[in-house]
Amino acid sequence: MDKLKIVVIGAGIGGLTAGIALKQAGYEVEIYDRIKEMRPVGAGISLWSNGVKVLNYLGLGPQIAQIGGQMNRMEYRTKTGERLNEIDLMPLIYKVGQRPYPVARRDLQTMLLEAFGGEVKLDHQCVGVEETADSVTAFFENGHQATGDLVIAADGIRSILRTYVSEQEVTPTYAGYINWNGLVAADETLAPKDCWVIYVGDGKRASLMPVGGDRFYFFLDVPLPKETPDHPETYQAELREHFRGWAMPVQVLIDRLNPYEVARPVIHDVGPIDRYVRGRVALLGDSAHATCPDMGQGGCQAMEDALVLRRYLMTTNLGVEYALKRYETERIERANAVVRKARKRAEQIHGKDPEVTQQWYDQLASEPPSDVTDAISNVILAGPLR
């Protein structure tokens, strides 16, 4: 297609990756976000090989390798520290052709901003869109308007534009647990520096994952009512109570974390929904398919969205709306399957049915490591870059 002007709403991982991909394709791209300053949501992200491959495709392979953690194996342990399973990730890496890179969100966002290179217009709250036969205009709360050939709604799980595309309200669904996450200095008293260690028990998890800068990205999951009060000054006391009697590295982690640098998302997902596109407006990333983080695929799916959207815009001459429908057809099958699978896994991990969770613990203790890596590789290899 001729040179297009593309308006992107949202400067998270999906919006920035889309901006980079579409700018590289020769299109004019403007990115807007409602926030007043760029701050990443959450401390870290487990970027699996399908997401890394998108970055490689966009020429960002050296940069992500520099900021990503060297994760060579995984360990599952009981809450008191007994090893359930040890999984060498090298067979997975060779099977899919790329190592995963757990990464601090701030480092990833900085890398993507530098790669985009253009201005991201902040403090622009999108409140709606209007379409004509050959253009679409985004309207902002501050009175600004942006007109282009298409609008990409990468405005997250609480998307304003999802209602326009779906023509109905889609409310995020509570996944049943709260997650505390942050960064701490890597230390062998917590975990080996090349290993992702996950402690499990009572429907809870405590996890340490290596990221760049000689740090661990940690998270602690607890099934709780979503209305549970949120007070950073009591995080450590709450976590000590939730993880009383757990292994010493978990206790050390809770002692070392800075509660005022900890994110505490109440975990929700979205969908699966049956429309990602309406006319010249396309949902991308969490606005279309926010997933429970239990498969580490949220950011990866947003990156895949960006690549597939670029491909259809570049390879069709039947118009923007046709290209977007092709994008929708491919992505709705792939991403909705991940939403379903991640929700099922969240329920399995977090004790929605205690019997199912206990069966999972028993399975961890007996299954061959290849079963774990095969399941991960199946998800990775179902993406657009095999």
Rank of each mutant, 00 (worst) to 15 (best):
A382I: 01
F218S: 00
T357D: 09
P384N: 15
E75N: 07
Y27W: 08
L257Y: 02
E86V: 10
I332A: 08
W196S: 07
N50E: 01
S287K: 03
E328Y: 06
R331T: 00
P40N: 08
A186E: 03
V52R: 04
C292S: 14
W196V: 04
N179A: 11
L161A: 05
E304W: 06
G117S: 05
V281C: 01
L257Q: 03
Y76F: 15
I178W: 00
Y199M: 09
R264I: 03
S49E: 15
F140I: 01
A375C: 09
P368A: 12
G42W: 00
D255M: 03
V277H: 08
R311P: 13
G148F: 11
E238F: 08
A263Q: 10
T329A: 14
A154M: 05
R343D: 01
N181I: 05
V165Y: 01
E167R: 14
L309W: 02
G19N: 03
K23H: 02
V96M: 08
N336W: 09
E30A: 10
H144M: 13
L220M: 14
E28Q: 12
L183C: 07
W360D: 10
A247G: 02
V356A: 14
F116N: 01
G383C: 05
R386V: 10
M38F: 06
I20A: 10
L239Q: 04
T234S: 13
K341Y: 11
Q301R: 10
H242N: 14
S366A: 15
E119M: 08
V129K: 02
V29E: 01
L122A: 06
P210V: 05
D362Y: 04
A185H: 13
P225W: 12
A206S: 04
L89F: 06
G203C: 04
N336P: 03
L283F: 07
A342P: 05
T291M: 09
A263Y: 12
I376S: 12
L183P: 03
R158M: 13
Y57P: 09
G128P: 00
H242P: 07
M248R: 15
R105Y: 01
V54H: 04
A346K: 01
A346S: 12
E321I: 09
L313G: 08
V200S: 13
I152W: 01
F139W: 12
L307C: 06
N179G: 08
